[in-house]
Simulated assay, not measured.
Amino acid sequence: MTEFQPDNQIQIEINGRACTCTKGEFLLEAARRNGFYIPTLCHHPGIAEQGCCRVCLAEVVENERSKIVVSCVYPVEKPCKVYTDSERVKEDRKVVLMLLALRAPESTEIQALCRQYGVMDGSRFKPIEGEKCIMCGLCARACASLGTGAISTVLRGTSKKISTPYDEPSDVCVGCLSCTRVCPVDAIPYTEDETKRSIWGREFPLVHCQECGAVIGTREEIALAAGKSGEEVQDLCPECRKKKMSDVMAHTYGTE
């Protein structure tokens, strides 16, 4: 008896092993879900794929024809054979990593990948000194998703970078650190002490939980969140708010 196969399910082969994926599912997700490792830099689960870094290359064979694809933006539409670490993939990935290393020679993440894949020596080319950023754009997209748009891509060519307009402190930045949290190469510096956080040329006062004293965020960040949710500005951290709500429920229903 033939096993029932839903119309939207596709049988593919990854590194010689039979796997199932959903039609239209990006190859990177299908591979990872089935336990296969593909390196990435510009991929983030909370932000739509963009295929900027090209580290996640894979080889796809359809109808005996082979091609190299960017797995994070390649939708699987038909049965195929996939190789995540073939010789062709390794060689192409080495070239990509060498170029990224020239772009961001100070990135320890890229250096680690270069060692892992035995990247060829690129010393005959001139690297961009002191640079970590690989221009994946995740930080700018994360910032835009908040509705602030404090940072973006500026300049062109080898001078291209992520920054605030005219490299001046941005009036719309709220110091939320969303940009730093999605950066795959730790390229966005900031400092923080008990009372303030400094990033993108601005200092932001930190707000502490009135119960436990934990940092909730910057004053501007909390005001933005309150404005979006229509709620009052919070003076409690999520854990203390949860505990307070539990106490209220316990008092209301007499379960104390």
Results as ranks from 00 to 15, higher is better:
K81W: 08
I38Q: 08
A58F: 04
H44D: 15
V73L: 00
V69L: 06
E59Y: 06
C52G: 04
F26R: 11
E25S: 06
P45V: 03
E64T: 12
V60W: 07
G24W: 11
N34L: 07
C52V: 14
E59G: 05
T22F: 05
P79V: 03
R32A: 01
V60E: 12
V55W: 10
N63P: 05
N34T: 08
N34R: 09
K67P: 00
K78Y: 02
R33Y: 06
E77Q: 10
L41S: 09
E64V: 09
E29D: 14
V76D: 01
V55R: 12
K78R: 15
I38D: 08
I47K: 13
A30M: 07
Q50M: 09
R32E: 13
P45M: 01
V61Q: 13
I38A: 07
T22G: 04
V70Q: 05
L28V: 01
V82M: 11
C42I: 03
E49L: 00
P39Y: 15
V82A: 13
R33H: 11
V61P: 10
R32S: 03
V61A: 10
R65Y: 03
R32T: 05
I38P: 08
K67S: 15
V76C: 00
E62D: 00
K23D: 04
K78M: 09
A31D: 06
V60C: 09
N63R: 11
P79D: 07
E49K: 02
V73K: 01
E25G: 06
H44I: 12
P79W: 06
